Simulated assay, not measured.
Amino acid sequence: MPCPEVVTGRVEIPGEDYDRIQRAADAGQNLWRLSPVRTAQVVGTSHLGLRPQDVYTFVEQYRDAGDGLMHAVVRVRHRDCVYLVELYQPQRQGARGIWVVQEVTEL
């Protein structure tokens, strides 16, 4: 495994309160939460072993028929490794909804 510092699999961030995060974004704080790419970058560098200088590329956004929530995929090139960061909107769907990292998969 060439990039053991990167956390893969299902992501659970201790103390992440989606209600509080959504309220903060509604109040104009932490607006990076409204962008799946910026959320992958900030959460990835804070909690998942990624780096700010890694290359973050938006792949797709879709509404999941099963849970009805908006999901997004961001590809991250970290050194010689490539990851897919899957995110979703737990509180509100669309432009004003926060994004949360759900899973990281190595390609």
Rank of each mutant, 00 (worst) to 15 (best):
M1F: 14
P2N: 13
P2F: 10
P4Y: 02
E5R: 04
V6Y: 04
V7Q: 07
V7K: 08
V7H: 05
T8G: 04
V11Y: 01
E12C: 08
E12V: 15
I13V: 14
I13F: 04
I13E: 09
G15N: 09
G15K: 05
G15M: 13
E16L: 12
E16P: 06
D17M: 03
D17K: 01
Y18A: 14
Y18S: 05
I21R: 00
Q22S: 01
Q22W: 01
Q22V: 07
Q22T: 05
R23Q: 14
D26F: 09
A27N: 09
Q29C: 10
L31F: 06
W32Q: 02
W32S: 08
L34P: 05
L34K: 03
L34G: 10
L34R: 03
L34I: 07
S35A: 08
R38Q: 10
R38V: 10
R38F: 13
R38I: 09
T39D: 05
T39H: 07
A40W: 01
Q41C: 10
V42N: 05
V43P: 03
G44V: 02
T45N: 10
T45W: 06
S46W: 13
S46E: 15
H47A: 12
G49Y: 01
G49E: 00
R51I: 06
R51L: 07
P52W: 09
P52D: 15
P52H: 11
D54H: 02
D54N: 07
V55W: 00
Y56H: 05
T57A: 04
T57V: 11
F58D: 08
F58W: 06
Q61D: 05
Q61P: 08
R63G: 13
R63S: 11
A65M: 09
D67E: 07
D67I: 13
G68M: 07
L69Y: 10
A72Q: 00
V73M: 12
V73S: 06
R75H: 04
R75P: 00
V76G: 02
V76L: 00
R77C: 01
H78K: 02
R79G: 00
D80C: 00
V82A: 08
Y83V: 03
V85R: 01
E86L: 15
L87A: 09
L87R: 07
Y88F: 15
P90R: 10
P90A: 07
P90G: 06
P90V: 09
Q91R: 15
Q91I: 11
R92E: 13
R92P: 08
A95M: 14
A95G: 11
A95K: 10
I98C: 07
I98N: 08
V101K: 03
V101I: 09
Q102M: 12
E103Q: 14
E103C: 09
T105S: 10
L107R: 10
L107E: 12
L107S: 11
L107K: 11
